[in-house]
């Protein structure tokens, strides 16, 4: 059991981790990729770098800095968060528990820009197997995705139906958790079609009749977790109060996940400010034991 788990190892997550660790608390950071910064070629607008630095280098420096201070950082992908008595954060490898959780997973990047996608959201297109799988008991489903997150959603959907086809939409398969014999279509998805509800997926190679489409592209974003756990969002941005806490007690969010200026300086500040309240809360919870 940790005091705090931080999901995401970009500037918001690592910045928060530095403060929380130095306050003497037990903090675990879990993250898989470098998000938007991983592909930022040159950073010239962040304080303190005489020469230009790449986004990847900056993130790697931050991780090394946190590790030097004793922060434990796991290179795993978080596939679900649940709150019972405590928060349970699940990766394909393990489940970790904490009193408080900070979401610092960056921007949502899980949609696809094709005809029908916006129109059928909630009408057969779902981002949450645990919430909506029930409506598709015994039905024919498509699951769009190709990584660990998709595999976790697939496992959830299996409780409701056997007839599931994974559509990778030409993305490489990056999980080893897909079951053998799984139906996988690698075509490029062109559109999602139907009248009042989803009826089929059209790809560059053909048409596939389906009753529902579940979306789990890439790694789960903060907005994906929010949908599942009941956190208020506004246009996929997590709504937080002035202490960076969401409407769910003990769950915080910072950085690009909460919107605003998409800049490193802002993410670092978010992380530090969120840490202030997290430290206060974590110490109260520790005393309460």
């Amino acid at each position: 059991m940790r005091d705090v788990i931080i999901i995401g190892k970009g500037p918001a997550g690592i910045s928060a981790a530095l403060y929380i660790k130095r306050a003497g608390l037990d903090v675990l950071v879990i993250g898989k990729d470098y998000g938007a910064l991983g592909t930022a070629d040159k950073i010239d607008n962040y304080y303190g770098f005489e020469r230009t630095i790449s986004g990847k280098e900056l993130v790697e420096n931050g991780i090394k800095q946190a590790e030097r201070l004793g922060v434990e950082i796991l290179n795993q992908e978080v596939v679900s968060i649940a709150k019972n008595e405590r928060f349970e954060v699940k990766t394909p490898e393990n489940t970790y528990e904490a009193n408080l959780v900070l979401l610092a997973t960056g921007k949502k990047r899980t949609g696809i820009n094709i005809p029908g996608f916006e129109r059928f959201k909630g009408k057969g297109i779902s981002f949450c197997a645990i919430c909506d799988g029930f409506f598709f008991r015994g039905k024919k489903l498509a699951l769009i995705g190709s990584g660990d997150y998709a595999a976790a959603e697939l496992e959830e959907l299996r409780r409701f139906t056997e007839d599931i086809t994974v559509f990778t939409n030409q993305m490489p398969i990056t999980t080893d958790k897909f079951e053998s014999g799984l139906k996988i279509v690698t075509d490029k998805i062109l559109s999602i079609n139907g009248q009042d509800r989803v009826e089929k997926i059209t790809t560059d190679k053909g048409e596939y009749p389906v009753d529902g489409v579940f979306v789990a592209i890439g790694t789960a974003s903060a907005a994906d977790f929010a949908t599942k756990i009941g956190v208020l969002t506004d246009n996929d941005k997590i709504i937080v109060d002035s202490n960076y806490m969401t409407n769910l007690e003990g769950l915080y969010a910072a950085g690009d996940a909460i919107g605003g200026l998409s800049q490193i300086a802002k993410a670092v500040a978010d992380g530090a400010l969120a840490a202030v309240d997290i430290i206060k809360k974590a110490k109260i919870l520790k005393k309460g034991k």
């Binding site: 645990i130 919430c131 029930f134 949908t227 599942k228 756990i229 009941g230 409407n247 769910l248």
Partner: peptide, 11 residues
């Protein structure tokens, strides 16, 4: 709503 739905319990 449904009893098993987390967001439903929140609302």
């Amino acid at each position: 709503w449904a009893a098993w739905c987390g967001p439903c319990r929140m609302i």
